[in-house]
Amino acid sequence: MLSRVADNLYWFGRYLHRAENTARLINVNANLMLDLPRRMTLGWGPLIEIVGADSVFRSHYDRASEENVVRFMITDPRNPGSIQSSLYNAREILRTVRDTMPHDAWEKLNDIYFHVQERGEVGAAGPAQRQVFLNEVIDATLLIYSVLNSSMSRDVGYQFLRFGTNLEQADMTTRILDVRATRLGREPSGPDLTPFENIIWMSVLRSLTAYQMYRRHMRSRVSGPGVLRFLLQNRDFPRSVMFCLTSIASSLPTLPESRKTERAIERTRALVRDANIDALLKAHDGVPRLMDEIQIGLGELHEALSEAYFKTS
C-alpha cells in the first residue's frame, strides 16, 4: 500500500465521520435549546468551541446567533470543518483512491455531496427543514459506512480508514465533554437548576447517540460522573474514547511495527483508564485538564501514524 493512499484513506475516514458528528451536534443542540429555560445562557456559541473554530468564526461573524452558527457549521466553505467542507474533502480524496474502495461508496458520496451543495442553504434556514436535512446527511454517511462495512476487503487500507474514523470519534467525544463539562462547572448551580444540568448531560449523550446504551450499561439515572465514565471508559460503546483507542490498538499488529505509535496509544489509553472521575469533578478544572491531556495524546498518536506510515518525502 502506497503511503499516500494510506494517508488519504485515513483522512477520508476522518472527514466522513466529521460530517456525521457535526450534523448530530447541531440537531441535538437545537433540541436542547427547546428544553432549557431562558435564563440559562448556553446558546449556540459552545458548538463553535466544541469544533475548535473560534477564531475562524469570529473573523467572519459578529455574534454567535443561531443563524450564524448553523450556517457556519453546515454550508460555510470558510469553515474547514463545515459539513459541506468535510464532504468536499472526503470526495476529493475518494476521487484519488477510487480504485481501493467499493464503487458504491463513490456513488453514495456523490449523491450526498451534491445534495448538500444544492439544498444546504435551504436546509440550514429553519429549524423544521433543518432537522430533516441533517438527518439526510446522517443517513447518507451511515449508508456509506454500511457499503464499506459490507464490501470492502479488510486489508491494510481498511485499517487506515478505521484509524481515521476512530481518532475522529475520540477527538469529538473529548471535545464535547470538555466544553459541556467546563460550562456546567461555571454555571450558577442551585437546586432549581439541577434538573437542567441533567438535561445538558442527556444532550451530551444524545449528540453521541449514547443515551440508550448509557441507560442499558449504567442502569442509573443520568448524572455528570456517570456520563463522563461512560463516554470515556466504557469498553463496549463504539463512541467512547476507550473503545476507539482499543480499536486502533487492535489493528496495529496487522501493520509494520511502529514503537512510537504503540507508545502513544498505550499512554493515552492508560490516561483514560486510570482517570478518577469523582476526584476530577471535585478538583478545580479537573475535567478540562484531563481532556487537554487526552487531546495531546490523540495528537501524538496522529503524529506517530503520520511518521510511521504516511510520510511521502
Binding site: M1, L2, S3, Y309, K311, T312
Partner: peptide
C-alpha cells in the same frame, strides 16, 4: 533504482 513509498517502506 526506482522505489515507491509504501507503508512497509
Amino acid at each position: 533504482c526506482v522505489y515507491m513509498r509504501t507503508i512497509y517502506g
